[in-house]
Design a binder for these strands. Structure first.
Length: 384
RNA sequence: GGACGGGUGGGUGAGUGGCUAAAACCAGCAGACUGUAAAUCUGCCGCUCCUUGCGGGCUACGGAGGUUCGAAUCCUCCCCCGUCCA
């Protein structure tokens, strides 16, 4: 069946290995999803993404709604066809923009009123509207609109966000099911997503996190996400909140921790039972000359690499590391050449996807904990 | 030979008596980045001393003198550069 999630292996730590199927192919979990907000993973062609082994990427409801417009994408055959991406696509709802565009929006129970960061025009994003846009895009996994808040947050603010997120999730679910029912058995043919994920909020309050999770579980989503983390709080807190929530989540359904993480943190989240993650870090840091390697971070613009003939990461098998030197990459960055961003992104995304491959293997062999501590050791030591 | 215009910190270039170790930009050095308003943003960027303070000393706006309490800024001469006229 083309819509399925199955846990195939578990680890003493709590980590799970599994397989996630969509109409646009299957992928193994735990999975890392590169972020392609505006229907492109910045710096990478779809060819490159496929070659790197990416089977699912992220796109953004809010951004694609503003430009080029979801109706245009629908008209052109859906997002997969539009961007020529054969793999799976998860679409974020715009809930993160509630957080990141906080100066440009007003929030009520009805929805979020945004002033476009592109032209200042005003738009109302409701839970139903966010679902509708994602249906138009034809995404494989749709996220509900949630209220993502800053951390640390006062308790009353966090409570309000939990309440509103549950309210919105219920409406989003009803809308989604109704539309799916209307489409009937033609749903798949019409490219409608079968997967809709809820998003747990609750800031750094364990009881609110539990409350949020329980409320969302009552609505009953095929998959569950944890949001509002890794937005400034310490890593230990991120882990604590994640653990609080994953304890409550059904074991047979996928769990997605949104927006994480640093290379050395990924295995920690997997150990807490997370199946999916996404993060802009590998792509953004790459554009900013920060290279992730098996030996730690390499700030490739630094003068110390001017004559360094080694590859970015001597232990890396990616095409960039096979062919180019640190000295060359440093030069490209200093020269402001677009190729610098392209090559660095290629490597960093490879690095992240490779971390996940290693983690999946480690789960198979039961030595995830070892992998995790090794990563932390390398990354606390700083660049070589 | 003459007439104008101009010489400012690594570069471009503001500044025409004190608020100027001297704008801004670039280059350089370092840092940040976690469901992307990010090929972005931040700090440093003459030398030096210390009790690291919106601290002290020194050097600095082509060169040398001078005026002034005080000069990158005004005056004199000189040296360069550009444009134009012979």
């Amino acid at each position: 069946m083309s819509f399925a999630f199955e846990v195939t292996q578990t680890d003493p730590t709590g980590a799970r290995r599994g397989k996630f199927s969509t109409p646009h192919g299957a992928f193994e979990t735990p999975a890392f999803m590169p972020v392609g907000t505006a229907a492109t993973v910045k710096g990478l062609t779809q060819d490159a993404l496929e070659q790197l082994g990416a089977r699912i990427i992220l796109a953004n409801t809010y951004h694609l709604y503003l430009r080029p417009g979801h109706e245009l994408i629908r008209k052109l055959g859906g997002l997969h066809k539009f961007m020529s991406w054969p793999g799976a696509i998860l679409t974020d709802s715009g809930g993160f923009q509630v957080f990141s565009l906080s100066d440009l929006r007003k929030i009520t129970d009805e929805g979020v009123r945004f002033r476009s960061h592109l032209d200042g025009s005003e738009h109302l994003l409701t839970p139903e509207k966010a679902a509708e846009i994602q249906l138009a895009l034809g995404s494989d996994i749709a996220m509900v609109l949630d209220e993502c808040i800053e951390t640390p947050a006062p308790r009353d603010i966090a409570e309000a966000a939990v309440r509103r997120t549950s309210l919105w999730a219920k409406r989003a679910r009803e809308y989604f099911l109704q539309k799916s029912q209307e489409a009937g058995s033609a749903a798949t043919a019409a490219g409608l997503p079968q997967w809709q994920f809820a998003i747990v909020q609750g800031a750094t309050f364990a009881d609110l996190r539990r409350q949020s999770a329980r409320q969302l579980l009552d609505i009953d989503f095929p998959g569950n996400a944890i949001g509002g983390l890794a937005v400034g709080e310490p890593h230990a807190m991120t882990c604590e909140m994640t653990a609080v929530v994953t304890e409550l989540l059904p074991k047979d359904r996928p769990r997605y921790l949104m927006g994480v993480g640093r290379p050395e943190q990924i295995a920690d989240y997997v150990a807490l039972g997370i199946d999916m993650m996404d993060c802009v870090l590998p792509t953004r840091a790459a554009r900013h000359a920060c290279i992730y390697t098996s030996e730690g971070r390499v700030l490739i613009k630094n003068a110390r690499y001017a004559e360094d003939q080694r590859p970015l990461d001597p232990a890396c098998a990616c095409g960039v590391c096979k062919r180019y030197t640190r000295a060359y990459l440093r030069h490209l960055f200093h020269a402001g050449e677009i190729t610098a961003a392209i090559l660095a992104t290629h490597h960093n995304v490879h690095f992240y996807l490779d971390i996940m491959r290693q983690i999946r293997e480690a789960i198979g062999f039961g030595n995830l904990a070892k992998f995790s501590s090794a990563m932390h050791a390398r990354y606390s030591a700083g660049p070589a």
